[in-house]
């Protein structure tokens, strides 16, 4: 390796790119896991309080639906700035991975909640009716029928969200979050270094491909 790469390049890889890569993976994974976790709860609230749900409640449904839609309509960069006070409150800081993860999770929660709601509403209404006709409780219908049937499309939705999250982490880089995106901006864009630009873009492409491949494999296993 060292014969092939100059010392500067080795240093750049070890000191800059490798940690950035680790930070990106960290952000993507934490955001996906927590975003899915919270997104699931929000989705259940929306499904239950929906006018065709188990306990229709216009106020709660309207409130959550509004918040989810507002979050989703913010460009991520703006959302991040908007959430700064909240981020500081939760993470105690407004820079670094810790801080970046807060707006990332907020945004992912809204996105994934909507995905889960859509996937579960896609479940055959006839199947839901059939299950009710056997006297199966509505809670069981939601979790054992709708959720179970929708699981493959929820998984593929979460994979889609993961790729979107990866894009957002690059933007978070602009706010001092670190990660591949921040390397691309600081060393590639601002220093006019085409090699770094191409390298970071290449890493992101491979990363996305990897996520897609794993996602497809899981989807096929689940179906």
């Amino acid at each position: 390796m060292s014969g092939f790469l100059t010392e500067y390049q080795m240093n750049f890889w070890e000191r800059i790119l490798a940690p950035a890569f680790a930070a990106t993976i960290q952000m993507v994974i934490i955001t996906t896991i927590l975003g899915t976790f919270f997104g699931f709860f929000v989705a259940v609230i929306l499904l239950v309080t929906d006018k065709d749900g188990i306990h229709p409640n216009r106020f709660i449904y309207g409130l959550f639906n509004f918040i989810v839609n507002v979050i989703r309509s913010f460009p991520f960069l703006i959302l991040m700035i908007f959430l700064l006070p909240f981020t500081k409150l939760i993470a105690g800081t407004s820079i670094g991975v810790r801080a970046a993860v807060v707006p990332l999770i907020v945004s992912a929660t809204a996105f994934i909640a909507k995905l889960i709601v859509n996937a579960m509403q896609e479940v055959d209404k006839g199947l839901v009716e059939a299950m009710k006709s056997f006297g199966i409780s509505e809670v069981q219908v939601v979790f054992r029928v709708m959720f179970s049937e929708a699981l493959p499309s929820i998984i593929s939705g979460v994979i889609l969200a993961m790729v979107a999250i990866l894009g957002s982490t690059a933007m978070a880089g602009a706010m001092g979050a670190g990660g591949i995106g921040s390397v691309a901006i600081t060393y590639g864009y601002q220093k006019f270094n085409k090699v770094v630009m191409v390298l970071t873009a290449g890493i992101l492409i491979v990363f996305v491909q990897l996520i897609e491949m794993i996602g497809k494999w899981v989807y096929r296993k689940m179906k």
């Binding site: 006839g126 199947l127 059939a130 009710k132 006709s133 056997f134 006297g135 199966i136 029928v145 049937e149």
Partner: peptide
């Protein structure tokens, strides 16, 4: 009503099934 439905079953035109 849930318990009562155990005694009254139903079949449908498009025979909905749990696909997985």
């Amino acid at each position: 009503l849930r318990t009562f439905r155990k005694g009254v079953s139903m079949i449908f035109q498009h025979f909905p099934m749990l696909t997985r």
